[in-house]
């Protein structure tokens, strides 16, 4: 393993220390591993809390700031944060009108956020609602799985709901909006290589040079199937087909297309993939109204990409375009 490290056990703490220095507009509680926007709690605004394991940077801390999240709890690498962190953060971002938990659908995250909501209810009078984000079509949504994973759609949910929260909408309206964006989103990812979890020191799975994994998640967990390495054109098809098969994205006000890098894939290749994906969408009559290309939800040093498509309406487009000032996304202010 070759990584920029001191001790793997200190990686998350030391990275948070650097992030704190680099972004004075954030406030970092190092003991509890909670990142806040500096002016939290914002009076009269619903607080938005998300979080998850580390290793997905810029998710989740890169999306804190005006127009997006109020706080994020950071866990160990690929490990959900714990209920105490979430309960503490919930208390500190309540501007008097409640807190919305935006939870990525993974067994650990869901259980820990559940316990945190119970704790917060027992200890304070903060109103908490939770919305679970589950957009990954690689996982069959059935009683026989933990349900679809939360992947790229979270960026659309957090951005759009963040803008709506800034406008002063109430907790119930924001929870409904979060569910609506999530329900209108589907994602599919692939890996060219595994990632290496620093505490383990070797790749999570062996992937020969001439094979790729289709339907991967964002934790180095293997995908649904392994296929021979193919040209980007064919890989784009393998990602777009299952997404379009799962929901009708034609018509209306168009879609948000988000091509995400898994951490080790250069922008040069991601834009090539966007071109392939856009051509396939043209053929299917799906109109990209907004686009986002880049490594926003990474899986450490995995090479590969995912595509997320969100069906937009006029309101969602306005909220997507609204000003945002975070380390990961910044426009309009």
């Amino acid at each position: 393993m070759k990584k920029l490290l001191n001790d793997p056990g200190d990686l998350v703490a030391e990275s948070l220390r650097g992030l704190d220095r680099a972004h004075p507009e954030l406030r970092v509680d190092h003991e509890n591993r909670i990142l806040y926007r500096a002016d939290a709690p914002v009076a009269g605004k619903v607080g938005l809390l998300s979080g998850g394991g580390s290793g997905h940077e810029p998710a989740h801390g890169g999306f804190i700031g005006p127009g997006m999240l109020d706080a994020v709890c950071a866990g160990e690498v690929f490990t959900s944060p714990v209920p105490d962190q979430m309960a503490e953060a919930t208390k500190n971002i309540d501007g008097g009108v409640g807190v919305l938990h935006l939870v990525w659908n993974y067994t650990g995250d869901v259980m820990n956020f559940d316990m945190a909501a119970e704790l917060a209810a027992a200890e304070t009078d903060t109103r908490v609602e939770a919305v679970v984000m589950n957009d990954d079509v690689a996982v069959e949504d059935s009683l026989f799985t933990a349900g679809r994973r939360g992947t790229g759609a979270a960026i659309a949910v957090e951005k759009i709901v963040g803008a709506a929260a800034e406008q002063g909408r109430n907790l119930t309206e924001l929870a409904d909006l979060a569910r609506r964006v999530n329900e209108n989103s589907r994602s599919m990812g692939m890996a060219l290589t595994s990632c290496t979890v620093p505490a383990k020191g070797s790749p999570t799975f062996d992937l020969p040079d001439d094979e790729i994994e289709i339907g991967i998640g964002i934790h180095g967990e293997p995908g649904r199937r392994r296929v021979p390495l193919a040209p980007a054109h064919d890989i784009a098809q393998m990602l777009v087909d299952p997404v379009l098969a799962d929901r009708d994205f034609t018509g209306g006000d168009g879609v948000l297309v988000f091509v995400n890098g898994m951490g080790a894939t250069p922008m040069l290749e991601l834009y090539l993939m966007y071109g392939e994906i856009a051509a396939l969408l043209d053929k299917a009559g799906v109109v990209p109204a907004r686009t986002l290309v880049g490594p926003y939800v990474t899986s450490l040093d995995m090479a590969g990409c995912s595509v997320s498509i969100t069906k937009l309406d006029d309101e969602m487009i306005r909220l997507w375009d609204a000003p945002v000032a975070t380390a990961g996304l910044r426009w309009g202010m």
Binding site: G53, G75, E76, T79, S80, P81, V82, P83, D84, T107, G108, M111, N112, D114, M115
Partner: peptide, 12 residues
């Protein structure tokens, strides 16, 4: 355990 483990194992 709930405070220090995280993931699914912590709550379980």
């Amino acid at each position: 355990l709930i405070r220090s483990v995280g993931g699914a194992s912590g709550p379980l």
